[in-house]
Design a protein around this nucleic acid. Structure first.
Lengths: 221, 221
DNA sequence: GAGCTACGTTCTGTATACAGAGGGCGAGAG
DNA sequence: CTCTCGCCCTCTGTATACAGAACGTAGCTC
């Protein structure tokens, strides 16, 4: 694999997993030495991270890992709702029924997946659900925009605690979306997606380690 | 200005203005020589263009300017509608009325702007309208996503012919959106935006130089 | 004591040199 | 005549060297 690719994957992972905390300064020489590569491929990796919005150039301080705030999570879900609700509606119109019928069976049996404490199989199912939706929508701009948003969602998700009740509820929400897509019901698919995202956001805001999200500034003062 | 920045701006402009046509191969050595810089900053520029979706890496052929098709324009507007209709609704809730009252006066007087054959003043007004909407929404993810879409819109727009009738109609459509935003009417702002985008898309599809957009493959055959 | 200036250090931005991979073309064999 | 194998050439990916700018610091002056 290319050195720049490894550096990108490694740094991206470190940021998404909160090993590199917001505000961390990423010096070129230091990081290049750490990863055992030269500055050239590292710069390419940092440029990609900057484009992703995981890193930003702060004048005077160099490149730093971007901050996450309660506001930014709300903003993220605002865009996510606009795009995913539309995606769900389009998927309901354009889907291959067989694909979503298969997913329906899997979500119906997701209790078993959630019994596993690691829940890898469940998260993999959700990933394949996202992929199937992307495929069904068949819109490359929408897919790449959602991919970009999912990067940030992944970072924030790591702060939230998915308790068993929430996971069971989320599985039921996904099942409803899949049902609607199978039925070709755009309106229901859209509404079910909106519901799912609202509950998901609330769960994140309720359970996120509040110390990690820089608190909102009370503008009513 | 940095050499990489100049290279990026120059190449981006060449692509948006159709001086670099879809399918053009961008060799690093050749382009670097052309721009009078070394490969290092050029590579950075090409990486940014790739992230923008204006350039893509085709295995075996190197980096080429991305294609534009009728389908891709339709896809573009699908995403645009999802995001801008939501943006308009949010702007109607969050706007500073004074800003949009000022814009309303300008759009009311846009006949005069459209009399100018260059129409620079009119396009500048539309740009400031977009900026005011972005500002009112106050969602950085939404703004940066829209910025990315606008890049592609700019490229496609260059193919379309804005006849005076269409421009006058577009001004009226903008005025309706602004009216709704001033009134704080989210539903109307959303609907007016949907209408505007549909008409705008139709105008592009009707008037675009068809040779430039690779024709859709008739899958009904 | 405080402020300004000058120097040094460190960082980013750019150029260049080098290595490895991949593709194209030509020659030879079937 | 065509297909295949091999070599060469070009291109990308990486390392390194160099230049200029910016920040901090220390010393001098007022």
């Amino acid at each position: 694999m290319r050195a720049s690719e490894r550096a990108y994957a490694s740094l991206r992972d470190d940021i998404l997993e909160w090993r590199l905390l917001p505000g961390t300064v990423l010096g070129e020489v230091e990081q290049a030495a750490q990863l055992g590569i030269s500055r050239t491929p590292l710069r390419e990796a940092l440029a990609r991270l900057t484009a992703d919005g995981l890193v930003e150039a702060l004048p005077g301080r160099g490149l730093v890992v971007t901050d996450t705030s309660v506001e930014s999570v709300v903003e993220l879900f605002e865009v996510r709702e606009a795009l995913e609700s539309r995606a769900a509606a389009l998927a309901a119109q354009r889907r291959d029924p067989a694909v979503f019928e298969a997913l329906r069976e899997e979500f119906r049996a997701s209790d078993a997946l959630l019994a596993d404490p690691t829940r890898h199989a469940y998260y993999d199912l959700v990933r394949r659900f996202d992929e199937a939706m992307d495929e069904a929508v068949g819109n490359s701009y929408l897919v790449s925009t959602l991919a970009s948003l999912r990067t940030h969602i992944a970072r924030v998700r790591r702060l939230a605690h998915d308790n068993p009740d929430r996971l069971a509820a989320a599985a039921a929400e996904h099942l409803l979306i899949v049902d609607a897509v199978v039925a070709g019901d755009s309106d229901l698919a859209r509404s079910a997606t909106v519901v799912h995202l609202h509950r998901s956001l609330n769960n994140i805001l309720d359970t996120a380690e509040s110390g990690r999200l820089t608190p909102s500034i009370d503008r009513t003062a």
